[in-house]
Design a protein around this nucleic acid. Sequence first.
DNA 1: AAAAGGAGCGAACAG
DNA 2: CGCTCCTTTT
Length: 643
Amino acid sequence: MKPYLNDLNPSQLKAVTHEDGAMLVFAGAGSGKTRVLTRRICNLIDSKLAYPENIFAVTFTNKAASEMKERVFTMLGRSPRYVSTFHSACAKILRENARLIGFRPDFTIYDQKESLATIKRIFKNLRINSKEITPSEVQKKIDKAKNNYLFADHFREADTFYNQEQNFIIADIYQAYQEELQVCNAMDFGDLICHVVSLFILEKDTLNRYKNRFKYVLVDEYQDTNIVQYKLLNLLTKDSKNLFVVGDDDQSIYSFRGANIGNIDSFKRDYPQHQVCILDMNYRSTKNILDAANAVIANNDAREIKSLKTEKDKGLPVYLKPAECEVSEARFIAQTIKDKNISLNEVAIFYRTNAQSRALEEELYHQSIPHKIFGGQRFYDRKEIKNIIAYCRLALNNDDNESFIRVINVPTRGFGKTSLNHLLNKAKNEKTSLFQAALTKVDGLGTRADKSLNSFIEQIKRYSLLASKVNNKELELAEFLQNIIEDSGYLNSLRENTEDIDRVENVLELLSVASSFSLQNDEEEAQILVAFLERASLNSALDQDSNQEHVSLMTLHLAKGLEYEMVFLCGLEEGILPHSRSLEDIESLEEERRLCYVGITRAKQNLYLSYARNRSNTSYGTWNFGICSRFLGEIPEEYMEAI
DNA sequence: AAAAGGAGCGAACAG
DNA sequence: CGCTCCTTTT
């Protein structure tokens, strides 16, 4: 018996049992998209068409990836290593082949802030006046270029006479930035994808190895892929044609990350023999909820005309709650959850921006409703955590300049800005990392600074030794961390300051996270410290998920692909959903509408929409009048009921 | 060199 | 409003 073939309609069955060749699946919300993907993976493996290692399945968010992996595991008892986000898949490939593109396998991944700090340093080095263009503008340009697999030369050759001077500046910074990252043995998020594509283009043997290995490539949320991601998929499947993509243009919500809807046309062009499969039967929501969703999305012009069907009853009306302010909105939500007898795991609260979670968090806490916030201000975005992570990174990768700068004077050890500038200059002249530059005499340093630098270098060397012990399993990860926070004096320096009590707590929390950290079944061959730091960088869940039942709080972006019996979609106000920064052009407004559509279609039985007439803290700490969202007006009254 | 005080500014979504 | 950056003071 093949249980994974049960309960499938003819279209789903066609997709699940599809074997070789390309396939494009249009899957409406709730039509069993994830189900099709996971079951096809099971079918490929179970019917011996593929071993788990022949599968390459990618998604966009960690939440979606772990969801998918879990489902495969439940059905099969094991799951392929490469069921992950694009970024984490690329990081894995790069760790295996780093040297071929001039990096070491222990490279560091820079997040947005670290990347920006690097760009700022380059501004100084190149003596660029930030009146002409700001570091963050440059960062956006570079990021966008990487989404399109374009390098510094692109800016130099761009024939936009309209702002050619600026293009030259950007090109110079872009180039210097890449050189600096190379010296640091570091990559930013965009590089993770680009470097893999470059690796595959430059090293035919390597590409062939992966082509043979990844016999079947599957892509979730295909409508959200960008140009460089398509290049990657295309390189892998050029010969086999085994590219299986699932998407829905009504759920395209990542244009800010360079999503290119033209990728659907590219697919049709490059895989002319492809089959198409359309899933338009919704199995998730009651008719009222689905009709409301259909009515909203029908207002978008740029879409293929389609409408989801259901065989379900009308069910409950969609409830609409106007609240006085965000606090009473939160109170309403908390109270409603308490009143209903429902498993908390089946309840979710969605919002447009992470900032909205605060009021909700507080109210749920007060009413003792167990809850979990996904995404948002991350644990390791905190200063104290970043500092410790920086020590760890530095132990693993001595050349990581960002981490070096971050902790060279933490805790204060008499090596200030002036001294750092001397060191920065030396490194710049010698084209080496700060660590390398510090190994020999640095001109201009006072005796105190010189001594302090030397002892810092010795310290890092010691930590490096410990780090290799951790990776060789001779030392526990938690012991390693403990060693660092005590030996460096960092924990004690926090304890001396009464304001830093919370920080001490957080550091101890990190220790406990580390002691319960273990490699996932798919990471057996990875080194534990590398894996630990990588998961911190890529924002994958570091903490073990608690077994306790809880309400889930997340942004609409994270909600995609999930479903809950009871859904609260809050903050339905002009300026929030649609977001104020999307009101100018029709395209981003339509994306906001898709976001709203995604939220509505997550609900199975029970959907609550709410908005606040007054909301504090929307912009620069002022009170705002809330005007209810235009999307609410797009839902016909027959499906809705105000309460 | 480090701490304290003041000016200025910016702020979605995710990896 | 809260954070970062810059200036001033000790």
